[in-house]
Amino acid sequence: MKLRSYSVAGVMLFAALAAFFLFPYNLAFLTRIFIMIILVLSLDLVLGYAGIATLGQAAMYGAGAYAAGLFAIHVWADPFAGLVVGAVAGAALAAVSGVVLMRTTGLTLIMLTIAVAQIGAEIANRMREITGGADGLRGIRPSKILGIWDFDFIGVTGYWYACAVAAFVFGLLSVIGRSPFGLSLRGVHESPERMEAIGVSVFQRRLIAYVMGGGIAGIAGALSAQITQLVSLETFSFTLSAEALIMLILGGTGRLYGAALGTVVFMTVHHLAAANDPFNWLFVIGGLVLTVVFALPSGLVALPTSLKRLSKGDRHARS
């Protein structure tokens, strides 16, 4: 177990290094992948671990992005302070909405999560004087990281900065995932009735998980605001929530590295397909998702196991 987690971390670090040298002209895109990985990781905590069905994770992402952007413009341009502000904003929105949302499940919950993100978008749209409305929030100029590295034109600093934040979040969630709290979230996911019978307030556990996930989504939003130096209404969009969900399902839920793998695969395929055929690229994405959902219901991380079972003639891949 320990060896495996080290090797997973090693492979990911190697991939980050290799990508940096192999695709020096695509750093902006690669940086975007890191930001999405953080958002999808937050979704894995909320959905993969705690089983909270949400289609509105972008709400906390947007809150983090706007909060960090406004903070950088009006208060302090330090990047790490911005991340903290983004995390607090995301967690605060998750806490306020979660008090109501975490009492619901299923379809009701999904509809409410969508509604929260829509409300966020509408508030950002209406408060034009503060947020820039549909034009987006401009003029974000983060200062040097640790007073040393300036955000450069090519995006080298941004790349490693985003990589470091993603690695930190991944490490943090790996620890939490193995903790008693992480185990209790899996318990809440698998059998809420039993958790109540054990003497646990399921509502409280779900709320804590939702707030944590909100904080991490807020970090992703803040990172996006600092690196693109712009926050648009798109940060609250339903498309973003839905794509994050597809990336997570593609990679496999409840395992963290599935979130990372799914994000990389989805965004790379998206990138290549959209470049080759700007009109029909969605077909490629659709085909990919269909194939994975039908052939590998546990996501791409289950590919080695499924192949092994297939070669043994066992047709029942475990879900």
Partner: peptide, 22 residues
């Protein structure tokens, strides 16, 4: 083991710990 660990951790008040292995 994990099934049994859950109620024991909760009874001992460790269920919300984040930074220890379960």
């Amino acid at each position: 083991r994990e099934n049994l660990r859950l109620p024991i951790l909760e009874r001992q008040g460790l269920g919300r710990r984040l930074f220890m292995r379960a």
